[in-house]
Design a protein around this nucleic acid. Structure first.
Lengths: 253, 253
DNA sequence: CGTCAGTTTGAAAGTCGTCAAGGGCCGTGG
DNA sequence: CCACGGCCCTTGACGACTTTCAAACTGACG
């Protein structure tokens, strides 16, 4: 029962064997926690390791020289941070905890080891990494081609669906621990304008504030309002070509 | 002498052995070409394979339901497209050739095979994949936190440095086969505004038009104008932890 | 009870998109 | 050879969207 959310995602793929899960569990043994606002990874930090979010929210961000910053993406339970970090000498973006959180971490050696032991596991983790690249693609599209209000609605729907993908039930997947300044930094707008956009969504009865969180009241409506196309989040099967290549490989190692 | 640009990048890492390069060469044997404007990968295409750009430019893009589109990033010689594609059932972004181009491609089986044969190679290719994720991060930052003129200057500098990283000499790295509508779709602005921003840079004697291409006249000046921080493009060493993990692994397989 | 971070709103200013129109270049077809 | 269409480049005017500045309100916390 380690990293339940990550397992939830992996099980949806229906690709791993029992042994792979055992290996994964071993990789995820070393745990750490962080408090809200804590910097989990510093910008320009030397140390390179991979982390898996067990519980809580964080975000990756990059600071600019003028003092502003851009939030690149949000990290929720089941997400992997810095899967490639083992090959990069230093991180050039920071990770900050948004809530109290728990995460697992393992050093480069663990991954290199796993590379030989379980190609399956590596393939699957890179599947997860591929999913998060899609999320980056969509963040680019949001910032480049949508109005402020639609950007916000779109982000809300994405987070809701990602939470459900990680195993959160409908209602839990409607509570987002985000403040308006954080939304502003993620959506590329001023915090004043984030407020105006948010107010507009409140007026439409799509969302509401709830004890310092944002609660989604009408996900369907939000999705309609921003013309949400969820295909970029739906990747729950492995192409048969890959599946058979792996099967052949396992037979004749 | 296959995929020279990719090799140029890999050699900078100083990590691969002779055998790895041989395996890479084998992977890159199957070649294909494309004409300007040709769709190399269709959106929602089923087929999943990995491609390596040998020569020419392309871009990844996503279409929106309102008919507009967002260019996610540009692909230049030495770049890898869809490294994770083998684990995703379908592509949800398209790839269009910008110039005449040549690329290598290999199916899932090739990668799965290589996974067992040369962990080194896989690590290194994922290093490349990590580099392109940084480029996505920076695209997000450009779109979210920079003005139109600075976005354009910043993209120009990035492309220049990436070209040099792929082995292009100073002068060749200053010619970009981009039209203003393409720039507009990449930088999240209207093509009218792309023109105005471009004109402003021309007036500053930073760039000029040259036979349908854009020529950079003063890369230093562009970098200064947009406060370019190149650390996100500089990752030419492997952390010692990873290096020693791999060495140990090779000793005791 | 004061501080601090987040929220909210108005007004003024700036950036950027849309609409409209004209110019140049090039390949196709008459 | 020339006319035509298509694509890109260019510019002005107007309006929409967004930022900035300023000010006030709220709730959590020490």
């Amino acid at each position: 029962m380690t990293g339940t959310c990550l397992e939830t995602r992996l099980e949806a793929l229906n690709f791993l064997q029992q042994a792979d899960y055992a290996l994964l569990e071993e990789l995820l043994q070393r745990r750490e926690t962080a408090e809200p606002g804590e910097l989990v990874v510093l910008e320009n930090q030397k140390l390179a390791r991979t982390r898996v979010i067990i519980d809580g929210w964080a975000y990756r961000y990059r600071s600019l020289s003028d003092g502003s910053r851009q939030i690149l993406n949000f990290l929720i339970p089941g997400d992997i941070v810095g899967f490639f970090a083992i090959m990069l000498a230093r991180s050039d973006c920071g990770v900050e905890a948004l809530t109290k959180m728990e995460f697992a971490h393992f050093p480069a050696a663990g991954l290199v080891e796993a590379l030989g032991t379980s190609p399956n596991l590596i393939l699957t983790l890179s599947w997860i990494a591929g999913q998060s690249e899609r999320v980056l693609d969509e963040q680019i599209t949001r910032l480049g081609r949508r109005s402020a209000k639609m950007r916000m609605a779109h982000l809300f729907v994405e987070l809701h669906l990602r939470l459900r993908r990680s195993g959160f039930e409908n209602d839990d997947a409607c509570v987002l621990p985000l403040t308006q300044p954080v939304l502003a930094d993620a959506l590329g707008m001023s915090s004043v304008h984030a407020n105006r956009s948010f107010r507009a969504l409140v007026k439409d009865r799509m969302v509401t504030r709830d004890e310092g969180n944002i609660r989604l009241l009408d996900v369907q409506g939000l999705a309609r309002a921003c013309d949400f196309d969820r295909t970029y989040l739906d990747h729950s099967t492995v192409p048969t070509a890959t599946r058979s290549a792996v099967r052949d490989k396992l037979k004749n190692p």
